[in-house]
Amino acid sequence: MLKSILSSLFVIVAFLLQAQTYYVFVGAYVPNAADQGINVYVLDANTGQLQHKSLCPNQLNPSYLNISPNGKYLYAATEARVPKGGSVSSYVFDSISGKLTFINKQISGGENPVYVSVHKSGQWVVNANYSEASVSAYSVNANGSLNPPSQVLQYTEGSKVVQDRQAIAHTHSCVFSPKYDQVIVPDLGADKLRIFNFDPKAKEPLSPANPDGQASPAGSGPRHFAFHPNQKFAYCIEEMSGTVSAYRYKKGKLSSIQNIPAHPQEITTGFSGADIHASPDGRFLYASNRGNENNIAIYAIHPGKGTLTNVGYQTTFGNHPRNFTLDPTGKFLLVANMLSNSIVVFKRDVQTGLLSKVSMLEGILSPSCLKVRAYQN
């Protein structure tokens, strides 16, 4: 009887997987917009192979991407590398044809927008600018287009611990809290996790929380941030010190519980932490290292304490893993090797957390961001 039930469940799961298409959106650094844009691939949910589906061309440096909750719209941080020239762009996605179409763009409030996040309502987009250390909020129209920024909050003072990198503030990402009532903003230049309250009904939705942040280790350079699926813990990859900090998150406040190396003991210089994500099952945390390493650090997460134990490192088979992501099921982990122009897909062992390469695409110009979403056929 049990065997029959399990067999039936397997058939149902297999059918559901076949009934979905897993699209992969690839942002990139393409300073000559005529070269490329945003590429769209299909991820085979069984094999991990990637097949090219479409290209939204002539997009300048769509370096970081995010998707609306309904999957219909995509937003990109588009760097210009000229003063006040950065922008945030919006696109509409047709999941039947697999085509992405540009809608409009608005100024970002800086030259180096590096991160965008979308509110659960789909009615707000938040952006972080690195060079000017500012955070911008945009209201979204019914057709997915962006209005001019409703708010731009700018910061100047850096920690000055590492003078050439921290003379001024550098906001590097902006992540909504699990309830979407706050935004966490790692500031690499200030060694601080800035915390903003977010009111989606307000014309200017962002306001500094009280207290307005959590200090990071001196000279660490906090970069990217991820919440645990249980919403009780959170993790930050620190670019300059090659470390990961673990936090408890309670009543809108962060409290430090651990700081752990993201690199093997034999690596002593050249740290360049980049991206960080927890697995959907909440059992493992992954962090990417560029610089002298080019690997993914793998940690087991203590279910009750949220603390981390390193269980291994996985080479990314490329150079400069600026960004990576996991598919919604947690079966695959995909890495963008920006300086070696490749995307590598790993299968994830759900019991050990370890990774094994299943496919690799080469010749993709400077991939910098990957987003995966399942769409019903």
Results as ranks from 00 to 15, higher is better:
L153W: 02
L74E: 01
P229A: 11
Y22N: 14
F25L: 03
V358G: 14
Q351P: 00
K347T: 14
Y23H: 09
H263N: 14
G122Q: 03
K347G: 10
D349E: 09
T329R: 06
A336Y: 07
D275A: 13
G213I: 01
R322M: 00
S131L: 13
F317N: 05
Y235S: 08
P280Y: 09
R290V: 12
Y286P: 10
S288G: 10
T329K: 04
N129I: 07
A234Q: 04
I96F: 13
N292K: 15
S272I: 05
F233M: 14
D164M: 00
A167P: 06
N295E: 11
E157C: 00
L308P: 04
E362I: 15
S288I: 12
P222I: 05
Y64D: 01
V162M: 13
E362W: 11
S288L: 12
F196P: 07
I38V: 06
T78P: 03
P217V: 05
T309M: 06
G304S: 12
L361N: 05
A234G: 04
S245P: 08
Q231E: 15
T171M: 13
V24Q: 06
P200I: 07
L6S: 12
E79C: 01
K192P: 02
I301S: 01
K201C: 03
L9D: 08
A218P: 15
P149F: 09
V161H: 12
F15G: 00
A297T: 11
K232E: 15
I257L: 13
V140G: 05
P328C: 01
G189W: 02
G98L: 10
K305C: 00
F10G: 03
V30L: 03
P113K: 05
R290D: 07
A374F: 15
L146P: 02
Q351T: 14
F15V: 04
H320G: 02
G158S: 13
T101G: 00
A278G: 04
S95N: 14
G98D: 08
K179M: 07
D349M: 15
S8C: 09
S342K: 14
V125C: 04
R290S: 09
F15C: 10
N337I: 09
A76N: 01
F324V: 03
S177W: 04
A226H: 15
E293G: 14
I343F: 10
K120S: 12
K305D: 10
S95P: 12
Q51A: 13
T352N: 11
N141A: 08
G304M: 05
